[in-house]
Design a protein around this nucleic acid. Structure first.
Lengths: 224, 224
DNA sequence: ACCATATTTCGTTCAGGAACGAAGTATGAA
DNA sequence: TTCATACTTCGTTCCTGAACGAAATATGGT
């Protein structure tokens, strides 16, 4: 019991690992190499540290191709780090992402990405429109809400497609999850149809229209 | 800035020191020797550990004659330890497993604890019956009020005792300060004598009697 | 298929620091 | 005063674990 506690605290109690955890405090996921560069150690050393942190469930690892993204495992970990920072009274403000347009709203393959998409997913989770960890299912609440919004959910749900229905995709700029899968792509299609956003002619940027601002705010409580 | 954080976390990240901190989680002050025995190391080693903890302001030291009493430095430290315990999901995490009654009103060694005791201390502070940060002194107002209530303050003040007169004890469940020391123990004695509370036969719980309710409300503005 | 990049595993080196006991200091008691 | 107890300081030993680079593995791109 206290043994477990001692284990955890020794894992936390390392200069390098604490620095890593601090970097992860912004809620984003970083690759092993990025972290190793940021804290100035060899990748091999970083790998060892990251494994220890994963072992103690302080962070978790998301494989994506040859990359491994690491992020804090739970809000409880963030809270722990925060109380640590409270002690030093050096609660550095979490670096706010300076949203250059592309970071803000764009496409990622066939679905939306950027801050808006991250906010959108977090709204849908919070309002219990969807459930699940990495693979999502639509709840009756979500189904109804989206239908009322104008999406033909019935059609989407009955679509025969090899595509996964809905899952979490890591955003490359925010490094936070956003909605991917059939639901994500249909949602983008819908938003473009409704002209809440329009495509930028030469990039993957999406431009939110005035009516889009209103609707996004109304349906998803997203302010721009 | 992160340097400071790393320092603190390395100090926390030691099996022996964490064990000591856990012992101190009950809010009580222990001597160096007691702690060294409890965690099974030589007194000299304990001394080094305790100094490190003091240096980082995780605990504080109160000299009293040849004894040194150590206790947690602040509620913030208790909170840190609690969030650490949260991670282990060990249900030794206090709040959920503790019956409400025990949280509400009980003894902590020789004085009262629980929500009532916390309220009581905060009332005494607010009404300027006592002054001080962690070590309290009785003010003339406090002295008079308590005397009027029926406590023999003169006798208590002139008692020769190694015990500290009055100090803040960290509450185990509330994580807030309550009154400990000679004054605290005498107050409990008084309250039991007056039958404002009675002891539960097999636990540290205190049961507030009907007349206790009236008196606590009248003298300390505490509603139950 | 080939190479480039991301990450892990392994073996080695090395510094830091945890632990002890002995000797020194401080305080209380007889 | 003298002794006992509480605690600290110092010097030494010893072990853990942080770090590295080289080689292995995994994946993507061309």
């Amino acid at each position: 019991m206290q043994n477990k506690l001692a284990e955890i605290s020794t894992v936390i109690g390392d200069k390098t690992r604490i620095n890593m955890l601090c970097l992860l405090m912004d809620g984003r996921a970083y690759t092993a190499t990025e972290l190793s560069i940021a804290v100035d150690i060899a990748p091999s050393t970083a790998s060892v540290h990251l494994n220890k942190l994963v072992e103690q469930k302080l962070i978790e690892c998301l494989k994506q191709g040859k990359y491994r993204y690491f992020r804090l495992a739970s809000p409880a970990v963030a809270q722990l780090l925060e109380s640590l920072m409270n002690l030093t009274s050096s609660l550095q403000s979490i670096p706010s992402t300076t949203p250059d347009e592309l970071k803000y709203c764009r496409t990622c393959y066939d679905h939306m990405a950027g801050k808006i998409a991250v906010d959108l997913l977090s709204f849908m989770k919070q309002e219990a429109w969807i459930t699940g960890e990495n693979e999502y299912s639509l709840t009756p609440i979500g189904s109804e809400s989206l239908t009322q919004m104008g999406l033909n959910i019935k059609e989407i749900v009955t679509t025969k497609s090899k595509k996964r229905f809905a899952y979490a995709c890591l955003d490359w700029s925010e490094r936070k999850e956003h909605l991917s899968g059939l639901l994500g792509s249909q949602l983008l299609k819908f938003i473009l149809d409704k002209k809440w956003c329009t495509r930028h002619p030469h990039s993957r940027e999406l431009i939110v229209t005035p009516s889009g601002k209103k609707s996004l705010s109304r349906y998803f409580n997203i302010t721009i």
